Simulated scan of single mutants.
Amino acid sequence: MSPAALRARAEALAQPLPPLLAEARQLAASIQLGEHGRRRPGMGDAFWQYRPAMQGDPARAIDWRRSARSDQHFVQEKEWQAAQSVVFWVDRSAAMQFAAEDRVTKADRAAVLGLALASLLVRGGERVGLSDMPNPPQAGDLQVERMARLLMAEEEAEYGEPRLTQLPRHGRAVFLSDFLGPIEAVEAALARATDRGLSGALLQVLDPVEEAFPFSGRTLFHSMSGGMRHETREAADLREAYQERLAARKAALAALAASHGWRFHTHHTGDAPAAALLWLYHAMERQR
């Protein structure tokens, strides 16, 4: 292949990457989190808190300056500094390509949120990766770029199912999806992750139209892949039953997450992504 042809292919491959990655990095940069920390005592250089000295603490561990101001002896606890691994499953199925009223697709919002969270975690020294990457989670901005490239590919399946090639023991995981497909796949994935000691969060990404169901009159509904179709003469008659089923699905996901010690939240593409990113970040912080 000639150098010109190789360059053309490389530019074509990279063309969609900068906007997605730039948006994720801009979103991450807009969040003021202070210094990242694990908030657990252990090995490290960062001071976390004082605690009263206990039997068995060596004399060299006592902070004599702090102890001089009290009748007790105190020990400095350091914050745990060992890097952890966080894996992401970001749904890129056909259903996630839905967008109404010129909004961003669910797939793009999920990808941006996942990459932005990965950027924040990398900034704090964590290892990150996609759950279906061939290699284990790694640290550094280059790993976030690798994730972004993989998230460019769309999937043919109507609904996504978590693919868990990488499940580092005692790490953490984030699943981003609309979770409108068979819930059994999510149940199986959570059970497998929990068996390996992972904690994590489910973030459901929905378009506001999927919540409001503002349809009336004769309407033809079809799936994003075109594989499913339903026509009705009066769509408004379906609204109540539809919203009840959606509420039941959310309740089932919340209960499923809670039963495994995970957290659940719903984000709408019509809302600013910063709030969802903060929720994800704090969900990770609480599970260290």
Rank of each mutant, 00 (worst) to 15 (best):
D57W: 09
Q55A: 11
F74D: 03
D132C: 04
M147S: 08
F74E: 05
K106L: 14
V86I: 11
Q81K: 02
A201H: 07
E211H: 03
R229S: 11
A100H: 09
E244Y: 01
L17M: 13
W48E: 13
S67Q: 09
M147Y: 07
A100S: 13
T269W: 11
A189T: 02
M147G: 06
A111P: 09
P273E: 04
L17F: 05
R103G: 09
P168T: 01
L20P: 09
S2Y: 01
R149S: 08
V86A: 09
S67N: 06
V104K: 07
V122L: 02
A252N: 12
S30K: 10
L150H: 11
A276R: 01
L117V: 02
A12F: 11
S67A: 04
S70W: 06
G34V: 03
Q15G: 08
M224N: 05
Q26L: 14
Y50M: 04
A83Q: 06
D63L: 03
R39E: 14
E184H: 11
P134Q: 06
L20Q: 13
A12Q: 14
Q26M: 12
L120S: 03
E240I: 06
E35I: 07
R263S: 15
W80S: 09
M96C: 00
S70T: 05
V122H: 01
A188C: 08
A188H: 13
W80P: 00
E244N: 04
A247C: 02
S223N: 10
G227C: 04
A5M: 13
R7M: 09
E234L: 00
E285F: 00
A193Q: 13
E211D: 12
E234W: 03
A274Q: 14
G34C: 05
E23K: 01
F179H: 08
S199H: 14
R103S: 02
A153G: 02
P41Q: 01
A258M: 07
S216A: 12
R249A: 07
A29T: 01
A157L: 12
R51H: 07
A118T: 00
A283T: 07
R92F: 12
D141V: 03
E158I: 04
H170K: 11
A189H: 02
A28N: 06
V87W: 09
A12D: 14
R69M: 10
T165F: 10
T269Q: 11
Q81T: 05
F175I: 08
E23A: 11
R249G: 04
F264L: 03
Q32E: 15
A153S: 10
Q76Y: 00
S119Y: 08
L278D: 10
K78I: 01
L6D: 15
P52F: 03
L238E: 10
R123E: 15
L176Y: 10
H268M: 11
W262M: 07
Q49E: 14
M284G: 00
Q84A: 05
G125S: 06
G160Q: 06
A254Y: 03
D57V: 02
H267C: 08
Q15S: 11
E161K: 04
V75E: 12
L120N: 02
L120T: 01
E77F: 00
R196T: 04
A14Q: 12
T266D: 09
E126Q: 09
E145H: 02
A241L: 07
L256T: 04
A248T: 05
